[in-house]
Every structure is written in structure tokens, then in C-alpha cells.
Amino acid sequence: MAVLEIIHYPDQRLKQESEPVTVFDQALKDFLSELEETRLSGPGAVGIAAPQVGVAKRIAIVDVSKLKKPVDNHGYLLMINPEITHWEGMEKGREGCLSVPDFTGNVIRAEKIKIRFQNSEQQWTEFETTGYEARAIQHEIDHLDGMLFLDRLVSRRTDLFERKVYKK
């Protein structure tokens, strides 16, 4: 197993659409292990997508279960051929990316999504998720479609009404 090299924008491979996974073999499993090892080597990365290591396949990993400030989560998610089938609400949040070092910016994402994907045994799973985990999944699936969070930046002046309100 090895930590793979993360490619950085302006590498144009990050702007390509990835191909669905059709062959579920040992080579795929080996790659998944390496992708996870690569994610864990990134400083505090909650997700990674195959295009970030130069592999144009529809594969992504998300795990928001180990944050200092805990959020609702479904644990470790290894997603093959993921699809978002439903979007709801909008929320502004700050994002950074292993492929865009030294920059974070505000991005609007759906607050709630329904996601379906395959595991390494080709079985499909589908569930709903919200908030931070939903944001991480949307960020990763964007990679599979050749999109970076830079494509979705909003002005720092853009503000949405938030739910959490502290009054005096």
C-alpha cells in the first residue's frame, strides 16, 4: 500500500468528468485502500475523490465521524458510482480542498440530500443525510463531474439566513 500523489489545480485532470466503475476486482480494492491511506495522510481531510489522485473513476470516500466538533454522520463511506437523487434547502459553508492548497472559500450547498452508491461488492445503498456530511459528499461528487469548489464560490458578502440565532 502506498500514499498516492494528490494532484493540484491547474492540473486539467481535475476538470474532467470521471467514468463509472464497471469492474469490481482485487485491483479496485487495492486502489480503494490506497485512496483511503492518501486521505488519512492529508491534514484533517474528511473526504477524497479518485480524480484527486489522477484516476478518472467515479469513486469517493467521505468520513466525518472523527471531527473534534461532532456532526451527524453515517460513519466511513466508501462510495462507488455515487449519485445524488434528491436535494433540499441551501446552506452556506466554508470549504477547502486537498487539490487547492492554501485557500478556503464560501460555497452554497444543499442542506439535505439523498445519496445512492455501490460498495466494493457492487451492492447499492441509499440514504438521506444533512449538514456537514451532505456538504462533504457534494464536494466529492463534484470532483467526479470535473467541478471544484472554486466553481461554486460565492462572495463573502453573500449571506443566507441561518437557523442558529443568539439574541441578547
Binding site: G42, G44, V62, G93, R94, G96, Y132, R135, A136
Partner: peptide, 9 residues
């Protein structure tokens, strides 16, 4: 006052 939890991915 809204905490910002930056996503790193």
C-alpha cells in the same frame, strides 16, 4: 454568531 466549521476534502 455562527461558528464556521471549515470542510477539508
Amino acid at each position: 454568531i455562527i461558528p464556521i466549521q471549515t470542510l477539508r476534502a
